[in-house]
Amino acid sequence: MAINLRRLRHANEMTQEELAERVGLSARYIGSIERAAVSASVTVLGRIAAALGVDPAELIRAQASGSSRKSAKEGTR
């Protein structure tokens, strides 16, 4: 979720402060979610998705990246 949140926030040209204000949370909490230091509740997930104009599933959808595929391959060696 952290990567998707940051990507979608940037795509919407929003700062953490702007998103936090729209969602009714602190910018520090948004930053913690983006760093994967905390997990957002389903309620918060829905509020963030609404503020970003996306379906909540978009926030939790797995991202296929070269680094995670590389890690998975290394684990099978």
Rank of each mutant, 00 (worst) to 15 (best):
M1I: 04
A2W: 02
I3C: 12
I3Q: 10
I3T: 10
I3S: 06
N4E: 13
N4F: 00
N4P: 03
L5Y: 01
R6D: 06
R6E: 08
R6I: 03
R7A: 06
R7M: 11
L8E: 00
L8I: 00
L8D: 00
L8M: 05
R9Y: 06
R9I: 01
R9S: 06
R9H: 06
H10D: 09
H10S: 08
H10I: 04
H10N: 09
H10M: 09
A11G: 00
N12M: 04
M14P: 02
M14E: 11
T15N: 11
T15E: 15
Q16H: 08
Q16L: 10
E17Q: 15
E17L: 11
E17H: 07
E18S: 11
L19F: 01
A20D: 01
A20S: 04
A20L: 03
E21D: 08
V23G: 02
V23E: 00
G24C: 11
G24K: 07
L25T: 01
L25V: 12
L25N: 00
L25K: 04
L25W: 01
L25Y: 01
S26C: 09
S26P: 02
S26K: 15
S26H: 06
A27C: 05
A27L: 06
A27R: 13
R28G: 10
R28I: 12
Y29I: 10
I30N: 05
G31Q: 07
G31I: 03
G31H: 03
G31T: 11
G31S: 13
G31N: 07
G31F: 01
S32E: 15
S32N: 09
I33Y: 00
I33C: 07
E34V: 02
R35H: 07
R35G: 02
R35T: 13
A36K: 09
A37D: 06
A37S: 09
A37V: 14
A37C: 07
S39I: 02
S39P: 03
A40E: 09
A40N: 13
S41I: 11
S41V: 04
V42F: 12
V42L: 15
V42T: 13
V42A: 07
V42N: 14
T43G: 00
T43D: 05
T43F: 01
V44G: 03
L45R: 03
L45C: 04
G46P: 02
G46F: 02
G46I: 10
I48Y: 00
I48N: 01
I48M: 09
I48T: 12
A49H: 03
A49V: 10
A49P: 14
A50M: 11
A51N: 02
A51T: 14
A51E: 03
A51R: 04
G53W: 10
D55F: 10
D55M: 05
D55V: 04
D55W: 12
A57Q: 15
A57K: 06
A57D: 15
E58F: 15
E58M: 05
E58A: 12
I60E: 13
R61D: 03
R61C: 02
R61S: 06
A62T: 05
A62Q: 06
Q63M: 04
Q63W: 15
A64D: 13
A64L: 14
A64C: 08
A64G: 11
S65R: 13
S65L: 03
G66H: 05
G66A: 11
S67E: 09
S68Q: 14
S68V: 09
R69S: 15
R69G: 10
R69W: 14
S71W: 06
A72W: 05
K73Q: 09
E74T: 14
E74V: 10
E74L: 08
E74W: 15
G75S: 13
R77E: 07
